[in-house]
């Protein structure tokens, strides 16, 4: 399986690790554009930086 491109940490510039996806219903209420019709909420992904521990949430890329 092809590996995804690593997200750069906005805190320290290190490579982040993608470890979770979640449906965020609150975000979809606040931002209807973010709604994924199949999941009924905003599909988000979570990346953590091994170097500085920052976690980033962003819209899922697929």
């Amino acid at each position: 399986m092809a590996q995804r491109e690593k997200l750069k940490c906005p805190g320290c510039g290190g490579e982040m690790n993608f470890h979770a996806e979640k449906v965020d219903y609150s975000k979809a209420l606040a931002d209807p554009q973010s709604m994924d019709a199949e999941f009924g909420g905003a599909l988000e992904e979570f990346h953590t930086c091994p170097r500085c521990k920052l976690t980033v949430e962003r819209p899922a890329t697929d």
């Binding site: 399986m1 995804r4 690790n17 993608f18 470890h19 979770a20 996806e21 930086c49 091994p50 521990k53």
Partner: peptide
């Protein structure tokens, strides 16, 4: 360890 090293592919 998992958050920092084990990725969803």
């Amino acid at each position: 360890y998992g958050r920092e090293n084990v990725a969803i592919e």
